[in-house]
């Protein structure tokens, strides 16, 4: 009888501990997921800003005067040939 009682107490305690450990692990995993999601959202925000920055820097209104400043001009018709005939 006593053995049975002790066994059940031990079983209950170990189960409780196991459950606590699992619950704790779940919480930690959830925190990690949330942290990852925060980092992901932050990274996506950064990417959006960088994309906008790149597009802003590459806008034709900015590139055209820079190109002219280094001596580039519109191609003349004689300078354009089909790629297939360029090396004939």
């Amino acid at each position: 009888m006593r053995l049975l009682a002790l066994s059940t107490v031990f079983l209950a305690l170990s189960s409780a501990f196991l459950l606590y450990a699992l619950s704790n692990e779940t919480r930690q995993l959830e925190e990690r997921v949330q942290a990852q999601e925060r980092r992901l959202a932050s990274a996506r925000g950064d990417i959006a800003v960088l994309k906008a920055d790149r597009a802003h820097l590459a806008r034709p209104e900015r590139i055209a005067p820079l190109a002219r400043a280094i001596g580039l001009v519109q191609p003349r018709p004689a300078q354009l040939v089909e790629a297939s005939t360029a090396f004939d």
Binding site: V9, L11, A12, S15, A16, L19, T26
Partner: peptide, 27 residues
């Protein structure tokens, strides 16, 4: 009394084991 105690503990253990075993379910 001993039987009642054992039954109560068994119920608690059974429930704990069930919860522990099903811990992988959706949170």
């Amino acid at each position: 009394v001993a039987f009642a105690i054992v039954a109560a503990f068994s119920t608690v253990c059974g429930q704990l084991i069930r919860l522990a075993a099903s811990g992988g379910g959706a949170f």
